[in-house]
Computed example of a mutant assay.
Amino acid sequence: MVDKEVGITSHDVVQRVRRILSMRQVGHSGTLDPIASGVLVVLVGSATRVAQYLQEDDKEYHLTLLLGIETDTQDVTGQTLSRMEASHITRDAFETAVNRYRGEFLQIPPSYSAIKHNGQPLYKLARRGISVTVDPRKVTVYRAEISGWEPPRAFLKVVCSKGTYMRTLCHDIGKDLGVGGCMESLVRTRSGNFTLKDAVDLDSLARDAAAPESLLQSPASGLPFERYEPEDDVLAQILMGRTVLWPGSEKAGMISVVSGSRLLALGEVVVKNEKTVFVPRRILEPMEKTSQIKR
C-alpha cells in the first residue's frame, strides 16, 4: 500500500513499484488523479487477481473546496471557465448545500475522467474538444462533515462509495451555491480497510526493496470476506479447483481461503444435491506451491 504523492499518476506509481521490486505483475485498485495524494492500494503478484473485489470498498477523503472558481476539469489544474465573488457565502449556507449530497444520489461523472465511451477514455475525447453526454451514476456519500471553514475555502471529510468523484462533488456544491466551485486538494485517507497511517511512500519502498515484506500487506486484510483456513488435504483440493464439503452452515457471499495471513483463493459456499459445499471461484496460488506455504 503506497502513500502516493501529488503530481504523479497512479500508473507512474505502478511503473516505479515494478522497477523497485523487479516484478512485472503489478497493478492498483482505485485510481488517484495527479492532484491527489494518499492511499493507493498497489497489488503485486497473484494479488492483482483480486483487484475487482478491493475496488468495491468504500473510500475516505479529506478535500479542499475552492468557492468562486469553475474549471473544465472541476479542479484547480484545469482551465478557468468562470470566476465569481464568494465572500457572501456563509457556513450555514454551505452546510445546507453539502447536506443535499449526503446519502444516495445520482452523479454525472466529469468529462475529464477515465470512464470510456465507445472504447475511448472521456479525458482523451475532452482534450480533442469532443463533448459526450454521460449518464448519471448512482453513488452514496455515507458521511460528509465540514472540518474547516476559511472562505473562499471549505474543508471536508467525506466517506463515500466507489466511483464517487470528489471533483464533481466540489463542482456541484459550488454550482448549487450560485458561485461555482472546484477541488483544490485531495487526500485519500482510507480505502476499505487500508489506511494512510499504514501506507509507505515510494522512497521508503525503494530503500527497503531488498526486504520489502515488512512493507507489504496481505490482500486478505483488505477484503470484506469471511476467512476460511482449511486443513492441508482440503486446501490441496481447493487449489486444484475442486469443490469440497463445507464444515458448517451455508454462508452468503465470497469466502477468502487463507493460510495464516496469506490469501490463496476465493470461493463461495452453496448447496448442491442437499450438501453444503465450498466452490472455488478464483485460485491465487497454484497447487504446486502448497508445499512452500508456512502454516
Rank of each mutant, 00 (worst) to 15 (best):
L284S: 12
A51V: 14
Q107T: 01
G7V: 07
H11A: 14
D57N: 15
L186Y: 09
L196W: 14
P136T: 13
E274N: 14
A126F: 07
V179K: 03
L263A: 12
S37M: 08
R19N: 13
L205M: 13
Y228T: 07
R281C: 09
G7Y: 15
D232K: 15
L122I: 06
V44F: 00
S221W: 04
L156H: 00
K157L: 08
T90N: 06
T290G: 03
E85W: 02
V132P: 02
L122P: 07
L67W: 04
D33S: 09
V187Y: 15
D208R: 08
G248W: 15
V141T: 09
R242S: 10
D203Y: 04
S218Q: 11
T290E: 10
L21Q: 02
W246R: 11
I20R: 03
L235P: 08
I115E: 01
G148E: 05
V13R: 05
L284Y: 08
M1L: 12
V76W: 06
R127E: 13
R102M: 14
A220R: 09
K59H: 12
V258L: 04
A97P: 13
M183V: 06
A47N: 10
Y123T: 07
E288M: 02
L235V: 08
K116S: 00
Q292V: 02
S37E: 14
N99C: 09
V257G: 03
G178E: 06
A265T: 06
T243W: 01
R127F: 10
Q237F: 08
V98H: 07
T168G: 10
E231M: 10
I293D: 08
F155C: 07
L65A: 05
D203L: 09
G241M: 10
S191D: 05
M1H: 11
